[in-house]
Amino acid sequence: MADRLLPMTVFIIRRLLQSVLVLAIMTVIVFAGVYAIGNPIDILISPDATQAERERAIADLGLDQPWYVQYWVFLGNLLQGDLGRSFVFNEPAIQLLLQRMPATLELAAAAMLISLVIGIPLGMWAGLRPHGIAGKTIMSGSILGFSLPNFWQGMMLIMIFAVILGWLPSGGRGELGSFMGIESSLFSLDGWSHLILPATNLALFKTSLVIRLTRASIQETINLDYVKFARAKGLSPRRVIFVHVLKNIMIPLVTIIGLELGSVIAFAVVTETVFAWPGMGKLIIDSIFVLDRPVIVAYLIIIVMMFITINLVVDILYSILDPRVRLADIKA
């Protein structure tokens, strides 16, 4: 056991040290970048304000200092666990993000769930019967999923299901249900009725991706020797596909799903805006418009850390799914 645990620990520590470096570089870039775009006060202040009021506001928010001084102050606070206060909301940036995070996470989880539940079976079907009508239809359909613009597709979903049919609400988050102390719209019917459209919108692209990936992996695996051997041994087709083939195609799937989960969380901006979903994506886009730097920086720190964690988990899952892969060999 120890011969597996030690390299894993070394691997994780090395990864964490690298992440700190990535975070440091990222914050410097964001600080300098936002500073170069403009002064948030020019957008936030009332046009009625006098010069004296303008100077008061700039000094109050610490924007009268050069950017490297502001960065130094930020670093000092960061070491005490303080990511700064939003210029716009006057609330701690981290609190604003954590407030919105559950909404984004449940949207991402629902979208990933939809894309897996629909994508893997369809992809398998298309992979096993590539020349059938169903297989071809699935593959052509997946092109649509790739190419429709997210924004337009969201508007169409709203037009069809909310405006014309009137089955589902056009946006917003709905009632939260409570389950084991966790509040989420996943636990209430009203919550699901609000969640289903944005989750579908977010899932369409991922579904297509999963379909294509599953199909390609199936076709690659199905002709390998071990599958032929399993068949020759007289195993039932069901067992060959669902145990032996499926387990092997999970490796590329896990990698892609892991990375895609990250991007679903980080970049649900368009979907959240169209469906007025109160998640982090909507907050970050609003914050960028008004150069609310503390929120932008805090958001990026969270997202970078999330990607680092997901990558780490994916690598560890790798070594579990495929015993031939050893963490020590993965170049971090």
């Binding site: 709203i158 909310a162 405006v163 009137g166 056009s170 917003g172 169209v274 007025a276």
Partner: peptide
């Protein structure tokens, strides 16, 4: 009060009766 910052989504929300 619901913030609906995307203009087409705002119109859709009215048309759907939300």
């Amino acid at each position: 009060f619901r913030p609906l910052t995307s203009a087409p989504a705002r119109v859709a929300a009215l048309l759907s009766g939300d």
